[in-house]
Amino acid sequence: MIRLRLEGLTRRFGGLVAVDSVTLDVAAEGVTAVIGPNGAGKTTLFNMISGFVPPSAGRVLFEGEDITGRPPERIAARGLIRTFQLVQLFQNLSALENVAVGRHLHTRGGLWAALARPGWARREEAEVDRRARDLLAFVGLGDRAETSAAVLPYGQQRLLEIARALAAEPKLLMLDEPAAGLNAAETRALSEIIRRIAERGTTVLLIEHDMPLVMTTADTVVVLDFGRKIAEGAPAAVRADPAVIEAYLGGAEAAHA
């Protein structure tokens, strides 16, 4: 089954073609990684899929339905949840409240429920609390529930953002460089968490620079270079692909020059 289909997805910023006619099928099962040098257009691709940036051309189909150009909250309601390359936590809230916000789409309490607190609303709140604590435990933050998100170390902030996204019960979870800023041990733990998310039936689409993480976690790897898709396939095959080696070596040479 195909969870997500991109058809000729393109985004131009002035004269720059950040994403150049990308066509891609993301299978419902497993982990798909998008890799590529800095500026290859990975985040822009995510921004178009999740509705934050309108495409210049092309279509986004989610479970066969055209969601191109819909606002982010409507796309999220469809079951497509993303995280951000620069962590976007609610710094003003505790870790527990951050995850509780993630339950928004699956709860319904409005103003009246807040003020009158009918039985169903109290049960709903208890359920939000229970699930949020479960998810914190799942990512290894069980003992940080009451801690303000702002004071968590960076690695834990990343994990918290993932727990919050999971609270929304995504069908497709999109992670933008979740291992950035993590040490080796944290990265291994993250890899384990991502595998378990995928095993539970959530499609994972992942942008990542950390090659060991990609090789151990991804089932399929897609390579972008200058906005174009230059390779796609199993991790080992992609790593051996001359075009991919060229893109990365070219990038390294440019960095030295």
Partner: peptide
Amino acid sequence: AAIAGSEDAARALGI
């Protein structure tokens, strides 16, 4: 409170 914290993150969670 989520909107006060980050509008983008709030929208990404369906708010």
